[in-house]
Every structure is written in C-alpha cells, then in structure tokens.
C-alpha cells in the first residue's frame, strides 16, 4: 500500500477495471488527447491528466477521444451501456451537463423503469465539480443535487483518494448509471490507497469522526474541512461526529438520523447552492424524522444563492470554509 493522490487513485481504478473487464471503455474530450494531431499521442490524458497512460495500454479502441459533442457521446455511452459495454464517460466539467442532460436523465436514468425492468445500463459519468479554481460561473458548480433528484441515477461524491478508488470501482461494476463527482481541488491530495482493487458499497455513510456533541454531515471536499473543524474543536471540548454520506443517491438516511439523534445537534455542510440542495434535503430529513431528539435547530453551511464568482476575493467568500463550519458548530453546540 502506498500513498496515492486522488488523481492516481482514479487513474489506477480505471486501469485495473479495464484490465479486469474487456467491456469497460473510457471516452471523453481529450481523455487521451492529441487524436489525429501531428504531435504527442496521449498528450493530455484528460484535461487534468487523470486518464493519462490508459491509451498506451488499451489503445484507441477502448480509450476514445471524442469530438466536443457531449450530447452525442454521453448518449452513446447510454446506448453502449444498454447493449453490452460498461462505458466510463468523462464529462469534463459538470457545468456542461446543460448540453447532455437529456441523455442522462431522460434516457439512461429511465431505461430500466420505462422498459419494465428489462434494461441494464451500467454506465459511469465521471465529472469535475467545485469552486476554488478561479474558474468562474460555468466551470465551478456543484450540481450533484440535480442528479440526486433523478430516480434511476446513482450519485457518488468521494471525499478522499481511498474513497475515490473504492467508490469508482463500485461505480464501474454497478449495473445502474452512476454520476461520479471529482472535486478539482482534490486531485493532488494523497493518502494510503491499497494497490489491489476494492469496492466501497453505495449507500453506506462513513463516520470520519465520532463524537458526542454535534453531528456534521458534509459532502465531498467539505468532509475534509469538517474533519479539520472536528479535530480543532475536540481540543476545546466540543466533540463532533462527521458523517460523509459518500453517495447522495442512495443516501444512508439511517446513519444520518442515528448520529443526529445521538448528538441532538446537526450542521450540514454542502458546497452546492442552498436551494434544493443536499443541505436542505438532509436538514429536512432530520427535522422530519428526528425532530424530538433535536436540541437545536439544524444549521446549514452553504455558499450564498449566487453563481460562483470569478474575482478571487469573491470566490473565497463564496466557498464554505472551516471557519464558517466552526462558527456554525459552535453556535449549535451553545444552543
């Protein structure tokens, strides 16, 4: 077992699953890069280098550079999945869902139900999300609540390199369509990741910290921020449970509610815009099902209901920070 970055963990997963199963293919824009160009083959390996090296082993028949045509290739991934392949399509930034959402939510997500249980659509869409890259409004969003809303889709949001490998392996082997969200600020973060393949089941929340006073439910990159806050507050006598749901669909409601009831105080941290978000969803869940156990109102830490701004100072204000999480936890702990 060696330290691997979030990027390396994902790359290794794709490599191992493609070796294991010849029906696994990957496709996307610049996923190898350099197709048909006079220069270097595998020039990019994905816009942030996540898929580098795959084409060298598997060739361009299984590592498909696509034209800039999300509607066509995401739909093709759905069609290929329904007919016997296990495509992993990369939607470079989730912000680009606008030009291929139909293929995801009206086609892939609904085949099984519409066709009376006779369709199996094992596709994965890997996509980057999240702010902090000075990438402005159309390259920085956290649109996972929209996909979580759609029955028929599964949504996985890994919070670390170890989680990424286990959840992506599960996603590729899963027989349902899975949206797999990769926070672009996390690619270089390292931790111990086993060399052998492993799966983390969907719908099993992970308690990254266990405490008695406050439950923090956090998504994706916010798990790390919440862990930092929990470690800091432990020294101040506020002990926190941090719940990483890992997947927002399916959502491990039982674990969230158990922790909420044990501590009676809940903060939900979500980098997505607040309306119809996971923060709202989880806060509503707790309020409806664990109301009697609550000692304080559920607090939500989210960005404001604005697009992601460009100017660095504004973007920094936009993103939930450990300081904001800490303030919210202190507030509910004191209430």
């Amino acid at each position: 077992m060696a330290k691997k970055s979030f990027r390396e963990a994902i790359n290794e997963t794709l490599l191992q699953e493609m070796r294991r199963d010849p029906t696994v293919i990957v496709m996307g824009e610049d996923i190898a890069g350099g197709a048909g160009s006079p220069g270097e083959d595998d020039a990019w390996g994905g816009v942030l280098g996540v898929t580098k090296g795959l084409v060298a082993e598997f060739g361009r028949e299984r590592v498909l550079d696509t034209p800039l045509t999300e509607s066509a290739y995401v739909g093709a991934a759905a069609g290929a999945a329904a007919t016997g392949l296990r495509p992993v399509a990369e939607l470079m930034f989730v912000d680009f869902m606008g030009v291929c959402f139909d293929q995801i939510f009206n086609q892939a997500a609904k085949f099984r139900y519409m066709f009376g249980g006779k369709a199996v659509t094992p596709m994965v869409i890997r996509t980057m999300y999240g702010a902090g890259f000075r990438a402005a409004s159309q390259h920085s969003q956290c649109l996972y609540p929209i996909f979580t809303h759609i029955p028929g889709l599964k949504v996985a949001i890994p919070s670390s390199a170890y989680e990424a490998k286990g959840l992506l392996t599960q996603a590729i082997r899963d027989d349902d369509p899975v949206m797999f969200f990769e926070h672009k600020a996390m690619y270089d973060e390292e931790e111990d990741v086993p060399d052998d393949p492993y799966t983390i089941p969907f719908g099993e929340a992970n308690l990254t910290r266990e405490g008695d006073d406050v439950t923090i439910v956090a998504i994706g990159r916010m798990v790390q921020f919440s862990n930092q806050v929990a470690d800091k507050l432990e020294a101040d006598g506020i002990s926190c449970t941090v719940v990483d749901p890992r997947t927002t669909s399916p959502l491990d409601e039982d674990t969230i509610l158990e922790c909420a009831e044990e501590t009676g105080r809940v903060v939900v941290v979500d980098e997505a815009n607040p309306r119809c978000s996971m923060a709202r969803d989880i806060a509503a869940l707790v309020a409806e099902r664990s109301f009697g156990a609550l000692k304080a109102p559920v607090r939500q830490v989210t960005p404001p209901h604005t697009p992601v701004p460009f100017a660095p100072g504004l973007e920094d204000l936009y993103i939930p920070t450990p300081d904001k999480i800490e303030a919210a936890v202190r507030e509910v702990a004191a209430a």
């Binding site: 029906t23 293919i25 028949e61 299984r62 498909l64 509607s71 066509a72 290739y73 995401v74 739909g75 093709a76 991934a77 759905a78 069609g79 290929a80 999945a81 329904a82 007919t83 016997g84 392949l85 495509p87 293929q103 086609q107």
Partner: peptide
C-alpha cells in the same frame, strides 16, 4: 446518440 452507442458496442465487441 443511443444508436451511436449501440454501434460502438457492436464495433468494440
């Protein structure tokens, strides 16, 4: 687009 995927399946396999 779905047909492109089905054709990709038959071609790949």
């Amino acid at each position: 687009p779905l047909i492109c995927g089905a054709a990709l399946t038959t071609k790949t396999l």
